[in-house]
Design a protein around this nucleic acid. Structure first.
Lengths: 151, 151
DNA sequence: CTACAATATTTGTATGTACAAATGTAGTAT
DNA sequence: ATACTACATTTGTACATACAAATATTGTAG
């Protein structure tokens, strides 16, 4: 569906406006789809994100700053996200012995198991949208988005 | 900046994953920029959106359903958005005489004036990101996003 | 006409987000 | 040691969002 149909536009829009709306709306579609997936496992999208970041640390714990700077939505409240994950015993949180200002957050086995369970579902979610594009088109989309963003 | 740098990825990512993250993050960048603009005029992005939809009605009032289906984020709570706009006297809300289940929401002169003030700022915001792409690239980006989304 | 389903909107509630202020710790200059 | 600045995280508060349930109105079948 073209973006004009999505928002039922009555007048023609400029190309810049169409692109913005297209990006906003596409993110919305992806986000809702993703939300359904993680919600079925009692996670919010951002909670999943934190778990994924922690797994990427390969055993090494991460402090709050590190988690924050690796998140896509940079303004999330990391403290409260980790609070929720702690309650579900998916992560641990301890004061860093070298620097007591910092916290060491690590994923638990339970957390790793949950991610493993989610992996194939997430993968197919990612591929679901991509499958309509050729590899060449995928590369182009990626490049154009990066070029666009760096204004 | 490439998406891998943004999220400081340690391992290479699949193309489908990169595209998803790229769209999510790009939306984030646009969104924050847009947020700053409307916030300076004491509006939230969604409030602005509703005003814009009402102006598009060209004098004809819109009921809640119509507003909802024209919004980019389809899950917003239209009632409360309109509540906020009412408080600022940017819109009016009346029961529809033909069908008392429906509401007729219309933009006021004050609302139109506010939009007019915002127009040039919004336009330059939209063009700011687009200016790094040729018109041909813009068309391609648009087409690829639509193709991508319709999975 | 009555009961029932469909439509349109509102409200309640839990949760999430944005942002400033507060807290606690570490490093540095005097 | 003291005062000051920078750093890391947490907390408070207002606001927004998601979603189910409630309310009110209209249309329709018997």
């Amino acid at each position: 569906m073209k973006i004009e149909e999505v928002i039922k536009a009555t007048v023609p829009m400029s190309l810049p406006k169409k692109i913005i709306l297209n990006i906003m709306y596409t993110q919305n579609v992806i986000g809702e789809n993703f939300n359904e997936i993680v919600k079925a496992h009692d996670l919010s999208p951002e909670q999943y994100n934190v778990l994924r970041i922690l797994r990427g640390q390969k055993g090494k714990p991460a402090n709050m700053c590190v988690i924050q700077e690796r998140m896509v939505a940079k303004t999330s409240n990391t403290t409260r996200l980790v609070d929720k994950l702690l309650l579900k015993e998916l992560v641990t949180r301890e004061v860093c012995p070298d620097n007591r200002r910092k916290m060491e957050v690590a994923i638990t086995q339970k957390g790793l198991d949950l991610l493993k369970e989610l992996d194939p579902v997430i993968d197919s979610h990612e591929e679901k949208f991509t499958k309509n594009l050729t590899v060449e088109e995928q590369e182009t989309l990626n490049t154009l988005l990066e070029k666009y963003r760096n204004a």
